[in-house]
Amino acid sequence: MHFLRHNPLAALGALILLAVLLAVTIGPVFTVSPIAIDMQAALRPPSLAHPFGTDFFGRDVLARVLHGGQATLTIGIGVVALAFLAGTTFGLIAGFAGGWPDLVMMRVVDALLSFPSLVLAIALAAALGPSLTNAMLAVAVALAPQFARLARAQALSISVLPYVEAAVAAGSTPGAIIRRHVLPNGIGPLLVQASLAVGSAILQTAGLGFLGLGAQPPAPEWGADVAANLQYLRETPWPALAPGLAILATVIGFNLIGDALGDWFDPRRRSE
């Protein structure tokens, strides 16, 4: 609460995310099936029966946004958890070990970072095949190098501090030193990166869905629904705008919290 009181943008981001989470968690209980087809109600404008209108197949757009939000948010958070675990572990080991292991491991990371993350995710998803699980793995691999680089930088700066050298002199194992000293003292920037990466993961997952490499019809997913309804944008914009605005609001919420966390963990900015 202290953090939110002194960071109005973080409070705004938290309110946005709270509204989105409540909507996608509770909302589906009160809506119709997102895959129920009613061709006689196709492309109807917003009304009391269909607050966000209907798409080309007569499916309720609100129901698809709410159900699709469950998949998109679960994947976004799951992707960041996988990328955080793999990338942080890889980077901490490389930074603490130093020498040729660090050199070899970072060249692998540099090779992955040489590709834009979305391009790398598209290539991996295309190679693995179109599915939501493969899209999740592809985005996780694309985001993991960012955590690896940041974790390595933290390990390099912390491993030369006196209390780490004292732990080495006392006979602590490298694994214990990383768990007890390096990771706890370098977790701040990694958490900031994680909060920003959730928005990026949601955006990339939606992008893969938009290209047909993520969720497959008729499953609701924000990116896939934008792509499916884009051709009707001029005449009936609501089927494409609703999931697009949901993506926008969610990504803005995570980015606002990430920016505020960056200021919070920066002693120079926090003291201003």
Rank of each mutant, 00 (worst) to 15 (best):
L120D: 06
A123E: 03
G76I: 07
A151M: 05
G91Y: 11
G95E: 13
A138Y: 00
G68D: 00
F56T: 15
I16A: 06
F147D: 02
A123S: 12
P130M: 13
G87A: 12
T88N: 10
A36M: 12
A63C: 11
L92M: 14
L112R: 03
V109R: 05
F96A: 12
A135V: 13
Q70N: 08
L18Q: 02
L66N: 08
A86V: 15
A135Y: 11
V61G: 12
L62R: 10
G58H: 04
G68M: 00
T72N: 09
L92N: 03
F96G: 12
L21K: 07
A41H: 09
G58R: 04
G76H: 06
G91K: 09
S114Y: 07
T31C: 06
G91N: 10
V80M: 00
L43K: 03
A23G: 04
L85D: 07
R107C: 05
P116Q: 07
F56H: 15
L15P: 04
T25D: 05
L92Y: 05
V119C: 07
A23Q: 03
D38I: 05
I77C: 03
A135K: 10
A153N: 08
R107L: 04
A11S: 15
A81F: 09
A10T: 02
V65D: 08
A153R: 00
A63H: 10
A83K: 03
G13W: 03
R149H: 03
P45D: 10
D110Y: 01
P130F: 12
F84P: 11
F30R: 00
T88F: 14
P45A: 14
V141Y: 01
V104A: 15
A14I: 04
L118R: 03
H50W: 11
G98R: 06
I122F: 05
I122P: 04
I16F: 06
P145K: 01
G95W: 05
G129E: 08
F96P: 08
P145R: 01
I35L: 08
Q146L: 10
R64W: 13
I16D: 01
F57S: 07
P45F: 05
W100C: 05
A14H: 03
P130A: 15
L112Q: 10
T31E: 07
A19M: 15
A148P: 02
M105G: 15
S33G: 04
F147K: 02
A11I: 03
I37R: 12
V119R: 09
A36R: 15
G58V: 05
A94N: 07
A135S: 15
G69A: 06
A125I: 03
V20R: 02
P51H: 05
V104S: 14
L143Y: 11
S114W: 09
H50D: 12
P34Y: 01
T25N: 06
L82S: 08
P45I: 05
V65P: 13
I26N: 09
G78M: 02
A41Y: 02
I37N: 10
S114T: 11
V80A: 00
L143R: 04
T25A: 13
L92W: 07
L21G: 13
P34D: 03
F147N: 01
P130L: 13
R44G: 14
R152S: 02
A135R: 08
A81W: 01
V108N: 00
L143E: 11
T25P: 04
R44Y: 00
L118I: 15
F56Q: 15
V24P: 07
G13V: 01
A140H: 09
F52C: 07
P8L: 02
T31K: 02
F90I: 11
N7T: 04
R152K: 07
